[in-house]
């Protein structure tokens, strides 16, 4: 089972994954935390929402994250799949989940997530990942800290260069 890494306050820690992944045909367990497909969420949403355990949904890259709108307040986890590391749809899905739906629960990258993508994952709003390359939490934390500055607003709290420049209007001129 792949390791789960959670990001919090600039740190990355290995964590236990409490969720049970349910196939669409699996019966709903009475208790416990579950992850279901979007299709199952849309058809059995009421039953799922009425359970006591935590509720997660897993989306493929072609699925519309805005379809989660009616459930955004009830969901504890959205897992977004990177089918290949070159497939960047999950980054847009993640930003839409955070910025358009206002989702504040766990946003997890699953599939071909590599440590080289740590910074862009975090900047797009992911706060958990199951790495495909077996890399350790320390490597992920280091990779998110490689850049002192960024050039654009995204789903994280970082100020872009333009805002830093406003705060320090007399930034020295380089070469």
């Amino acid at each position: 089972m792949p390791m789960l890494i959670r990001f919090e306050g600039g740190q990355a820690r290995a964590a236990a994954d409490p969720y049970q992944a349910l196939d669409d045909a699996d019966p709903l367990p009475v208790a416990g935390d579950v992850v279901v497909s979007l299709a199952r969420l849309l058809t059995e949403g009421a039953a799922l929402a009425a359970r006591s355990g935590r509720l997660g949904v897993r989306l493929g890259p072609a699925e519309d994250v805005l379809a989660l709108k009616p459930f955004a307040g009830r969901l504890d986890l959205i897992a977004l799949e990177l089918p290949k590391f070159r497939d960047g749809r999950a980054y847009s899905q993640a930003r839409l989940a955070r910025e358009r739906l206002g989702f504040t629960g766990e946003l997890r990258a699953v599939g071909e997530a590599l440590v080289e993508q740590a910074l862009i994952l975090v900047r797009c709003g992911f706060d958990a990942v199951t790495p495909a390359d077996g890399s350790a939490p320390e490597a992920w934390a280091a990779a998110t800290r490689r850049y002192r500055h960024v050039y654009q607003r995204a789903a994280d709290a970082r100020d872009p260069a333009s805002a830093e420049r406003l705060r320090a209007p007399k930034v020295g001129q380089g070469a």
């Binding site: 960047g88 930003r95 862009i120 050039y151 654009q152």
Partner: peptide
């Protein structure tokens, strides 16, 4: 140029 530099959402476009 600045806005698109290492843009996190658009680093793996089609």
């Amino acid at each position: 140029r600045q806005w698109s530099t290492l843009h996190p959402e658009f680093s793996y476009l089609p």
